[in-house]
Design a binder for these strands. Structure first.
Length: 632
DNA sequence: CCCCCCCC
């Protein structure tokens, strides 16, 4: 027999909102709830208890995680007697009236015990908000230890399965309940309690009276969608305060109501929104939960003075060169100078067949450059001022041809941001020297970070099946150029920066670019060299463009083009001859692709360098020696 | 309740 007496009827009193009572209850069931989280180091484990007051049980009791160890250390277990020191009732579904008891503090009075009494389960729903038309307040609800009438009447009705649960008196007490810590039946209110601001990182689905004071760090466009329930629209935004961040979504009515109200960078009070576990597949923000604005949600802009306590949008910039070391699909913050900008281009998505506008930027910082693709509205909106400094918050890393950046709907793009010192640093650097520098381009495959490119022989390309994977292989080859196609070595290129298309000579002094759909009175010579390179194990045809071709031939495309124009065949032959006498290191990108239904291997030269022993490290020398020992 | 973020 247990030495403890349970506080009869306490559970129902809790459910009605009298949470001040320190009831003595028995734990009659423990369930583990594993919230989904991608991060195995973050324990999302929660325990749900079934509590008994001797007459009734209630199974939806969430144990505060700080008390998890009571269970894990076997102090709190089935049949343990506990004293509830702090409890709150939370509505988790207004439609069904489903509630939950949040156990914030409890003490284990007796770890081992036997089951007391024969309690009957209270329902999880409809316990409070069934009707509200009686003003009888005759029953007090703060009786301790002795108030068994309510519990028994409730349990009796529950046994009968009636929908008018539990009693008129109970329903009536809902008033107090709402006034206390819940808004179960209250209609949408327009007020915000600014006195009790909570931190974003304390929000959870089991807590329902809160106000947060947050800065909007990003906001998407309104997007329309269609699903089984019909059409809908929504936008997402990210909210931050000094404690953390959370993602929020607004659908349909709330989408219209809040989209224009919420402005990026501004501070708002937000009260009464729904919370649910964050969907890690789509939400990378550092919060276990995400928010949905609902009919009851109240948002009010905070004036500038009051908003100052909320941190400004924080950028955690990584240098462009560092992008090479990050995995594809990572989301990061990057800042740089826009060195060049493309026109708007339209592409058709393979998956949706929809059209999308895109615009490409070449973004540079002191050490590297990368291609940034802007999509949709962001591509259209981007103003082509002269070489602005642009910060991207939450931009995604892609792995086409090395590394690229690609905006998401949630990416914040800020031109010449004043809040970071980097803006002025980059501005100064670019104007003084950056604009003249030719920096490694992460989007050209050649300069993929610190990744070591292995030395191979030409025969290994076939024996090791290089280039057959989804992603290209990069190798170094020590080889000699043995043939160069002369006629196609240079072509007339569109003068538009970053277009690169071949122009058609209209034979009237103008040159037409089909891609730009424009006619120019000039063009640029550009290399597109097909060359055969050979080592002692075999030979392969490779392509070399621009810088690499220029290095290979030792003469600019312009000069070469002029020789071609002037039919200086001897000079061209000379140039080729010189090249072919030299052994060099070719960095190759190997990738097979489909061409007229045929699989073919493309070998692109990403870099040509002389075998200059002094400039290479020990590793390179050792690798080359090793290759030579294989070859001989 | 979305969850697409696209193309070479």
């Amino acid at each position: 027999m247990s030495g403890q007496r349970l506080t009869t009827g306490a559970l129902l009193r809790y459910l009605r909102g009298n949470s001040s009572e320190k009831a003595i209850l028995q734990v009659v069931g423990i369930k583990t709830i594993d919230s989904k989280t991608d991060d195995p180091s973050v324990s999302a484990k929660r325990y749900r208890l079934m509590l008994s007051d001797g007459k009734s049980t209630f199974s939806s009791c969430m144990l505060g995680t700080q008390m998890n160890q009571l269970i894990e250390m076997n102090s709190l277990k089935e049949n343990s007697i506990v004293r509830i020191d702090r409890v709150m009732v939370n509505a988790i579904d207004k439609q069904t009236g489903r509630v939950m008891l949040m156990l914030y503090e409890l003490e284990v009075l007796q770890s081992d015990s036997e089951r007391i009494g024969d309690p009957v389960a209270l329902p999880l729903t409809d316990i409070i908000n069934n009707g509200n038309n009686n003003t009888n307040r005759s029953e007090t609800n703060d009786n301790n230890q002795t108030s068994t009438t309510t519990a028994s009447s409730a349990t009796n009705v529950i046994r009968n399965g009636s929908k008018t649960l539990p009693t008129i008196d109970d329903r009536n007490n809902t008033k107090n309940f709402n006034g206390d810590n819940n808004r179960l039946t209250a209609k949408a209110s327009n007020t915000i309690d600014k006195e009790r601001i909570v931190n974003i990182d304390t929000l959870n689905p089991y807590m329902n009276k809160w106000t947060i004071k947050v800065r909007v760090s990003s906001k998407s466009q309104i997007r329309n969608y269609q699903n089984a329930r019909g059409p809908g629209k929504l936008f997402n935004c990210d909210l931050v305060d000094q404690s953390g961040e959370i993602r929020a979504a607004a659908f349909n009515t709330e989408c219209d109501k809040f989209h224009s109200l919420l402005e990026i960078g501004k501070v708002y009070y937000i009260a009464r929104a729904s919370l649910k576990p964050a969907n890690r597949q789509f939400n990378s923000l550092n919060n276990d939960y995400e928010m949905t604005f609902n009919y009851d949600t109240c948002i009010e802009q905070c004036d500038t003075d009051e908003g100052q306590s909320i941190p400004q949008i924080q950028f955690n910039f990584i240098p462009i060169s560092e992008i090479a070391n990050r995995p594809a699909n990572n989301v990061c913050d990057v800042i740089g100078v826009v060195k060049s900008i493309s026109n708007i281009d339209t592409i058709i998505s393979k998956t949706s067949q929809k059209e999308f506008n895109k615009r490409e930027l070449l973004l540079v910082d002191e050490n590297a450059s990368i291609t940034v693709t802007l999509w949709g509205q962001q591509a259209e909106d981007f103003q082509n001022s002269s070489n602005p400094v642009v910060a991207f918050k939450g931009i995604r890393i892609g792995d086409f041809n090395g590394r690229t950046l690609s905006t998401l709907n949630s990416t914040l793009i800020s031109q010449d941001p004043i809040e970071t010192q980097r803006t002025i640093e980059l501005r100064t650097w670019y104007d003084k020297e950056g604009k003249l520098m030719d920096l490694p381009d992460l989007s050209k495959g050649a300069d993929i970070g610190n990744q070591q490119v292995p030395f191979k022989t030409l025969s290994q390309i076939n024996t090791e099946g290089l280039g057959l994977n989804d992603k290209p292989d990069y190798i170094n080859i020590k080889a000699t150029t043995t043939l160069i196609k002369k006629d196609t070595a240079v072509y007339m290129m569109c003068p538009e920066e970053r277009c690169g298309k071949k122009v058609v000579d209209e034979n009237n002094g103008t040159f037409r670019c089909e891609k730009c759909n424009k006619t120019y009175n000039h063009f640029k010579w550009s290399y597109m060299i097909s060359a055969e390179i050979s080592d002692s194990t075999g030979a392969q045809w490779i392509s070399a463009f621009r810088n690499e071709a220029e290095t290979l031939l030792g003469i600019s495309a312009d000069e070469f083009g002029n020789h071609k124009l002037n039919q200086n065949e001897n000079i061209i032959d000379d140039i080729f001859q010189k090249t072919m006498n030299r052994e060099r290191i070719f960095k190759l990108r190997i990738k097979s692709d489909q061409y007229n239904d045929e699989q073919r291997m493309r070998l692109t030269c990403m870099r040509v360098s002389d075998i200059d022993w002094s400039s290479h490290g020990r590793r390179l020398i050792e690798e080359i020696n090793q290759i030579e020992s294989i070859q001989h």
